[in-house]
Simulated assay, not measured.
Amino acid sequence: MTKICLVEDDPDLRENLAVVLGRADYDVRTASNGVHAIPMLLDWRPDMVVCDMLMPDGEGFEVLRSVQSTLPDTSFVMMSGAIGEVADVLEAARLLGADAILRKPFTPDELLETLARLRNQARTAVNVSAT
């Protein structure tokens, strides 16, 4: 079962996304911010991280840097509902190494399709390196 760490400061959205992911047979653990997420990442070692970009107490970029330095094989999805000039920062997440970005609001299907694509890419990479 694919393990996903979901990092989102909005409690309602965090719970709703966790339900969607759980129903899709993902093993999900949640954190309300980067400060809580980083120790969990190091201990639990998820396959994927879905992380909000702008949060009090540990922004998404801090989580991304931690994942890149300690869990380089973990896929990373950055999400944000930022608008205006701040929204351009979401594209910077991709340039800094996020495997995918999601602009809020997104549908459950968009989230699941993104994760399935990343999971398939990871499987392909493992199969290629095993040959």
Results as ranks from 00 to 15, higher is better:
residue 66 S to K: 13
residue 76 F to A: 00
residue 57 D to S: 09
residue 69 S to D: 14
residue 83 I to R: 12
residue 101 I to F: 00
residue 66 S to Q: 14
residue 83 I to Y: 06
residue 107 T to F: 07
residue 110 E to D: 10
residue 84 G to D: 06
residue 73 D to F: 09
residue 97 G to F: 07
residue 52 D to A: 12
residue 112 L to Y: 07
residue 111 L to Q: 10
residue 56 P to V: 12
residue 95 L to H: 06
residue 112 L to I: 13
residue 115 L to N: 11
residue 74 T to F: 05
residue 63 V to M: 02
residue 96 L to A: 14
residue 105 P to M: 04
residue 91 E to A: 04
residue 68 Q to K: 15
residue 62 E to Y: 04
residue 54 L to T: 13
residue 114 T to P: 08
residue 69 S to I: 12
residue 90 L to G: 13
residue 120 N to T: 14
residue 108 P to F: 02
residue 65 R to G: 15
residue 64 L to K: 05
residue 104 K to Y: 07
residue 85 E to V: 03
residue 113 E to T: 13
residue 118 L to D: 04
residue 83 I to F: 06
residue 83 I to L: 09
residue 92 A to V: 14
residue 73 D to M: 06
residue 70 T to Y: 13
residue 86 V to P: 01
residue 53 M to W: 10
residue 110 E to H: 09
residue 84 G to S: 05
residue 113 E to G: 06
residue 122 A to M: 04
residue 67 V to S: 10
residue 66 S to F: 12
residue 73 D to V: 03
residue 75 S to R: 15
residue 58 G to V: 03
residue 108 P to T: 11
residue 95 L to C: 12
residue 111 L to S: 11
residue 63 V to E: 03
residue 54 L to N: 07
residue 113 E to Q: 13
residue 81 G to Y: 02
residue 106 F to V: 07
residue 63 V to D: 01
residue 75 S to A: 15
residue 106 F to A: 03
residue 104 K to F: 02
residue 122 A to I: 08
residue 93 A to P: 01
residue 55 M to Y: 10
residue 120 N to I: 10
residue 104 K to C: 01
residue 74 T to H: 03
residue 122 A to W: 01
residue 101 I to K: 10
residue 61 F to M: 15
residue 59 E to T: 06
residue 58 G to I: 04
residue 87 A to E: 11
residue 111 L to D: 00
residue 84 G to L: 08
residue 80 S to F: 06
residue 93 A to L: 02
residue 70 T to V: 15
residue 111 L to C: 08
residue 76 F to L: 05
residue 93 A to W: 00
residue 97 G to T: 08
residue 109 D to G: 13
residue 79 M to F: 09
residue 92 A to K: 14
residue 112 L to R: 11
residue 57 D to N: 15
residue 77 V to T: 10
residue 116 A to Q: 12
residue 118 L to Q: 02
residue 71 L to F: 07
residue 111 L to T: 09
residue 104 K to I: 06
residue 62 E to D: 14
residue 97 G to M: 07
residue 65 R to D: 15
residue 121 Q to E: 14
residue 78 M to R: 01
residue 91 E to I: 03
residue 63 V to T: 08
residue 52 D to Q: 03
residue 114 T to A: 05
residue 94 R to P: 00
residue 112 L to D: 06
residue 92 A to F: 07
residue 70 T to K: 15
residue 62 E to W: 00
residue 95 L to Q: 10
residue 82 A to V: 13
residue 96 L to D: 11
residue 57 D to P: 02
residue 121 Q to N: 11
residue 101 I to H: 02
residue 97 G to C: 00
residue 60 G to S: 01
residue 95 L to G: 12
residue 112 L to G: 12
residue 73 D to N: 15
residue 89 V to Q: 09
residue 113 E to W: 03
residue 61 F to E: 12
residue 109 D to W: 03
residue 66 S to E: 15
residue 104 K to T: 06
residue 121 Q to T: 11
residue 93 A to Q: 02
residue 89 V to R: 04
residue 78 M to E: 02
residue 62 E to I: 04
residue 62 E to A: 14
residue 117 R to N: 08
residue 70 T to P: 05
residue 107 T to N: 04
residue 81 G to D: 09
residue 109 D to I: 10
residue 59 E to Y: 04
residue 121 Q to K: 12
residue 86 V to A: 12
residue 61 F to Q: 00
residue 93 A to F: 01
residue 111 L to I: 00
residue 102 L to C: 12
residue 87 A to K: 06
residue 114 T to Y: 01
residue 61 F to P: 04
residue 72 P to Q: 08
residue 121 Q to L: 14
residue 91 E to R: 03
